[in-house]
Simulated scan of single mutants.
Amino acid sequence: MAFQNAVKEKTPAAMKTLVAAAAATRWRQLPEALDPLAQFAAPECLNAIANPCVDTDAALVVLQSLISRMEVMADGAYRVEHDQSKNLLRYYQLLQRFINHDQDVEFHQTQIASIKFPLKLTEVTQVDSKASPAVQLADVMIGAATEAANNMTGLRSGGLDPEAVISLYAENQFIHLTPFIDFEEQRWFGEGTQAAEVIDYFAANFFGPAEV
């Protein structure tokens, strides 16, 4: 909570609270992540958090993960209809850059994830779910999956049977983000992949001045 508040407020008081919160944790159990803040209040960390261009919005990461998965599952060209969303509207221009990018290039981001351009994705549109039975069905399925996940992790009880809901999905239809601190396995997971090259390529080709 202190970190989220520091990213949002970007004030000296919020930074001070963040450092105090980090120091109050058992940070020695995870020094790779917490030592710079907890022990040293590292200026490079605090300056990055205070940067007006830095936020914790994970929507872009989720969109990229979703596109990567759809690209693997799609046999040919496809389009996406999405319920009205401020985040999707925020990233619409970037998504168009992805779609219009015609360079023949492929990157392996992890042992199981890759992205290849040009995309098979041809169009992303926002629709009113009230006018789209397909989007309505997707909303219902997403809601059911979220409820099932909450029940399985003990965050909620009652409602739909989690096992019955999960059985409706194939394994490759799930994208999940979970904390993982087995660092040796994580090193293997990223070994020989091109995560750094992906960042450099995206910075050079998609995050420059707006195209005319």
Rank of each mutant, 00 (worst) to 15 (best):
G154S: 01
D161N: 15
N205H: 13
T110E: 04
T110C: 06
A2N: 03
L63V: 11
V105T: 04
S68Y: 00
H82N: 08
V135F: 00
L168S: 08
A134W: 01
D104W: 07
V19W: 01
Q93R: 14
V80R: 02
V19G: 02
F189G: 02
H82L: 14
Q194W: 02
A170L: 09
N5K: 15
A24R: 11
F98Q: 03
V124N: 04
H82Q: 07
V7G: 07
I115M: 15
D104V: 10
N47E: 15
V165A: 01
V72D: 02
L137P: 03
N151I: 11
Q64F: 14
A33R: 08
E44V: 11
N205P: 06
A23K: 13
A21E: 10
F189I: 01
P36W: 12
E32A: 12
T25F: 00
Q96R: 13
V19S: 02
L89Y: 08
A196D: 07
R69S: 10
E71I: 02
D104M: 06
L88A: 13
R79T: 13
G143D: 13
T56F: 11
F107K: 07
G159Q: 04
L94Y: 07
A170M: 13
I199T: 13
S65N: 10
G190Q: 07
A42E: 06
F98M: 00
E197I: 00
A23F: 00
Q96L: 15
S129E: 09
P31L: 09
P31D: 12
L66E: 09
H82I: 14
V72I: 11
E184A: 11
A144F: 09
A204Q: 13
E211M: 05
P162E: 02
V54L: 10
A48P: 05
S132C: 06
D102L: 04
T125Y: 00
D139W: 03
R69F: 03
Q126C: 15
F40I: 04
A74W: 01
A149N: 10
M1R: 09
F183Q: 12
P43Q: 05
I166Q: 11
L37R: 04
H108Y: 15
K86F: 04
A14W: 00
S68P: 06
G154K: 03
L66H: 05
P52D: 08
R187Q: 05
G76Q: 14
A203I: 02
A23N: 05
E191N: 10
A210I: 08
N5C: 03
P36I: 06
Q173R: 03
Q194K: 02
Q186A: 10
A48R: 13
Y78K: 08
T25W: 00
K116F: 01
L95P: 08
M152L: 15
H108A: 10
Q84V: 07
Y78W: 05
E9M: 05
L155N: 10
L66T: 13
M141L: 14
F174S: 04
E171A: 13
N47P: 02
A22E: 03
Y91H: 14
A2S: 10
L88I: 14
Q84F: 00
A195Y: 00
S68F: 05
